[in-house]
């Protein structure tokens, strides 16, 4: 069976400095994969390559039966890659509702459904995104990605820098999405919260995938070595 996302031997460089030295990972339909590693190990670069925000210098990325190698990033997004970028990137000047509307594509996700998942967004529907709290903005960006009806939802450090209560709320939503069968690629550092969602983990170290396995197996000495926890 062919995977939803299949990344093989991915290489990438920022100018002369190489960042990825061969990263491979696979996500099956309905599966959640956690991409882990300490800061600067290539997690965000890997995601930038998958979403075609950055050109890979080598390797192969296939998604839902398409080779992503030459696609511009908006076409990759249309194939069903829903990115939630690092650091709460809503369209600041648009209202919550307008942010969601702008991204909408035909499919099962509607503004109402997003508001069911994040009731706070319903309360803030007419507010400009820049007036929301950090957590609400993050919910909005997740909602915006869902409005494109993605086959694969990509979350890059979705809960970084947020208050514990809000983190819990967002993780609960991610677990609910997973339970509904949404395929997810999630980048995060918090092993405890990932363990409840991820079927599989890939650990990156210095631009290479050094460990594959289920989250339960990633504990103790391994976690200490790769994640510094």
């Amino acid at each position: 069976m062919s995977a939803l996302l299949d990344v093989e031997d991915l290489h990438a460089a920022y100018g002369a400095s190489q960042a990825l030295f061969g990263v491979s990972l696979r996500i099956e339909e309905g599966q959640a994969l956690a991409l882990m590693g300490r800061n600067g190990m290539g997690k965000t670069t890997t995601i930038a390559c998958i979403t075609r925000m950055m050109a890979a210098s080598g390797g192969r990325i296939s998604f839902a039966g398409h080779d992503l190698a030459r696609l511009p990033s908006h076409k990759a997004a249309r194939l069903g890659l829903g990115l939630v970028p690092e650091g709460r990137r809503a369209f600041a000047g648009l209202t919550v509702r307008e942010n969601l509307m702008a991204a909408a594509r035909k499919g099962e996700w509607t503004i109402e459904k997003v508001c069911d998942l994040f009731p706070r967004l319903a309360e803030r529907a007419r507010q400009r995104a820049e007036t929301l709290s950090g957590g609400e903005q993050q919910m909005l960006v997740i909602g915006r990605a869902l409005m494109t009806n993605p086959k694969l939802l990509i979350l890059d450090e979705a809960t970084e820098g947020l208050a514990p209560v809000v983190r819990a709320e967002i993780w609960a939503a991610i677990r609910e999405l997973k339970a509904q069968g949404q395929s997810i690629l999630v980048v995060d550092k918090s092993l405890r919260e990932l363990a409840a969602v991820a079927d599989d983990c890939v650990v990156l170290e210095r631009g290479r995938d050094v460990w594959h396995g289920p989250p339960e197996a990633l504990s103790g000495e391994l976690a200490q070595r790769y994640l510094g926890v």
């Binding site: 979403t51 925000m53 511009p72 990033s73 908006h74 076409k75 997004a77 249309r78 829903g82 990115l83 970028p85 990137r89 369209f91 600041a92 000047g93 648009l94 702008a102 991204a103 594509r105 915006r144 990605a145 409005m147 494109t148």
Partner: peptide, 10 residues
């Protein structure tokens, strides 16, 4: 506001 974010939603 941001062309790249627009590309990210297709």
């Amino acid at each position: 506001q941001n062309r790249q974010r627009l590309m990210a939603v297709g």
